[in-house]
Design a binder for these strands. Structure first.
Lengths: 201, 201
DNA sequence: GTCTATACACCGATAGAC
DNA sequence: GTCTATCGGTGTATAGAC
């Protein structure tokens, strides 16, 4: 429910827009100063407000971070949904596409990555509502892998470990480079072999 | 040089012992309250001191964290050195042993894991001195994999991604469980297949 | 809704007595 | 080497005027 609803009246729409502005400012702050540098004063400054004014729109700093978490997973899920609708028939090609998409999504925004994977943000615990998109995304991944011929339960867990490992290494040890990005095709082939996918022609 | 040197005189040895106590207290504090909860006041309380007294032993809070980083990597490297001396001849068995060892080391102490892999500790950047053990460890890993028949350069990067991915998933999504621990043998087999290691008998 | 002013709790670090 | 006292700063959050 972070998107604007055209049926709302003017003041409600204005409120939504302001919440959006605050969220954007929070992302920019986190990108610049890291999660430990994300403070209400800095966010407010970027929006053009004073810190206490933020409380008219979010109940607390935690509520802001919570909204960021939900929005990030929703964003990934939207991307995966798009991908799902245009998946190639060849299982290996499809797998590679999914892998590259996720890898690119995470590595392009390291700060977002640390929030989504629950590392680095002090005492943050997502609310049930903001957790929902990440669950939806895992379901979608399960479906996607099944369509690629991965039916075993272990398939999903090994997939998340493999892709997550590649992205984390890329971000931590070669930020901005492609040392692990270059390994993605090979990693996917290795994974496909393990689950007995037919070789492409 | 964090180990005690028997040739030092009494006061120097006492100093070393106190530094050790402080480091231990810092670990315990980080385990209990997380890295954001690691404060000099809490560490001092655990040691039985007042916060300012810590400055007689460490120049700053950053110096303490730095020492923890170096000690953690030294600890892992010691374990890997032990492993190296008793490695089985069969390449696949050796690989599995290395994987299990690293996986167990990291997952047994999640807080240590986040420090070693440079996620979650505010603005920490390791000093050259404390960074050295981690470099040594990577060299050892390279040597270890070579002995197992992994000669390609990509071998090390894919290995760290795979093992790191498994450990991170285990810690983040099933702490205390074995959902990804159970996948380690399969992941190692998949990896060994990719690099053409002969199958065990 | 936004502002100013402020409460309250902490933090890392320093000065100087003992 | 450890203490007390304190500095200068941070943070989140609230009260109340406009």
């Amino acid at each position: 429910m972070t998107l604007e609803d055209p049926k709302l009246d003017w003041t409600a729409r204005r409120r939504q827009a302001t919440r959006r502005e605050i969220l954007d400012a929070a992302w920019e702050t986190a990108r610049t100063d890291g999660w430990e540098g994300l403070t209400l004063r800095r966010v407010a400054e970027r929006v053009g407000m004073r810190a206490p004014s933020l409380y008219s729109h979010y109940a607390s700093k935690a509520a802001i971070v919570d909204a960021m978490f939900g929005a990030a997973w929703q964003e990934l899920d939207d991307e995966m949904a798009q991908l799902e609708s245009e998946l190639p028939d060849d299982p290996r090609a499809a797998l590679l596409l999914v892998a590259r998409s996720a890898f690119g999504f995470f590595t392009s925004e390291p700060v977002r990555h640390t929030l989504m994977n629950l590392i680095a943000v002090p005492g943050f615990v997502p609310s049930e509502e903001s957790y929902a998109p990440s669950v939806r995304n895992l379901d979608r991944l399960r479906r996607l892998l099944t369509r690629c011929g991965i039916t075993e339960a272990a398939g999903v867990d090994l997939w998340t470990a493999l892709i997550g490992g590649l992205t984390s290494q890329q971000i931590a040890n070669d930020p901005g480079g492609d040392r692990w990005a270059r390994l993605v095709p090979r990693a996917v082939a290795m994974y496909a072999d393990q689950f007995g996918l037919p070789r492409s022609v």
